[in-house]
Design a binder for these strands. Structure first.
Lengths: 148, 148
DNA sequence: TTTTTAGGTCAAACATATTGACACTTTAAT
DNA sequence: ATTAAAGTGTCAATATGTTTGACCTAAAAA
């Protein structure tokens, strides 16, 4: 248990995480809206861009969603020619995904607004705060992997 | 535009925010699951707990959802006797919300796991990092209010 | 008296996600 | 060679969350 003061501090942290995350995602969501896409599509574009030739299986594990949940958005992105696929020559069961030129352009736009957003804040708070912030965020993610 | 190095740093930040937030919400989600509740219910419990006697209207503005989206979860919480309501004596149109004893207990459990999670990470990264992290998160949230 | 505000509700529509079941292809194991 | 396992795809049923639009009451403000 925490004393009242500490509890207040931690609740402030919870709220800033909630409101910060919400604000962070809102900008990209608006661009996605104009393309008739959702946040899942962005996540796929992002991680396929970050990990060219990622397999469907690896993408599922990374996003922690069911293959049924991924299927529709991915099919859509393939149909829109934002993502391309080819069979892995060393294991022809595996489908490798990568961004097309158009897909890379959209991804750069979406992620660009988020990089701008972060960079603006980091510029105000300074490089030390940037490092500390990353350490805390990574800690949150890692602390899960044990209990998750 | 950012140079490649900076872009890598900012993408790391984006990913740690995504994975950190996901890990952060996962624990409470599991508890909610056992009660047949969702994340919206938690948000309502949280903010009603933080702002006793908040009106439905103010809650809508805080959560930025439509009244239709709030209606069902809130009705549910009232029916489960986790949230109570009474008319504002100074304006009888307004319905004031507050947690019941049972509601407060569940809210404390849900938010407790999140406070534990945060406190564990802050304990590892230190008080300076905690302050810096909060400053960045608040910056993210505020930067939206202008452009939002 | 009329208009505005706070709240509630019904309906249609769409997006997101789940689990279960089944099929196909390819690789690995026996 | 046969069988088992892995990677992918798809259909169905179900549940949830969310939106917009429309319509309603009650109370307060103009």
């Amino acid at each position: 248990m925490f004393d009242l003061k500490r509890q207040g501090e931690l609740r402030e942290a919870i709220e800033s995480l909630y409101f910060g995350y919400r604000a962070f995602t809102m900008r990209a969501d608006r661009i996605l809206d104009r393309h008739g896409l959702g946040r899942v599509h962005h996540r796929v574009l992002y991680f396929v861009g970050r990990h060219p030739d990622i397999s469907v299986h690896a993408l599922l594990a990374l996003l922690k969603v069911s293959k049924q949940a991924l299927n529709a958005p991915l099919r859509r992105l393939l149909a829109m020619n934002l993502v391309g696929s080819e069979a892995d020559p060393s294991d022809r069961r595996v489908k490798l995904l990568r961004l097309t030129q158009t897909g890379a352009r959209l991804e750069a736009q979406l992620t660009g607004t988020q990089m701008d957003h972060l960079a603006r804040v980091f510029a105000r708070t300074g490089p030390a705060a940037e490092g500390a912030w990353k350490a805390v965020m990574a800690g949150l993610a890692n602390d899960d992997e044990m209990a998750g």
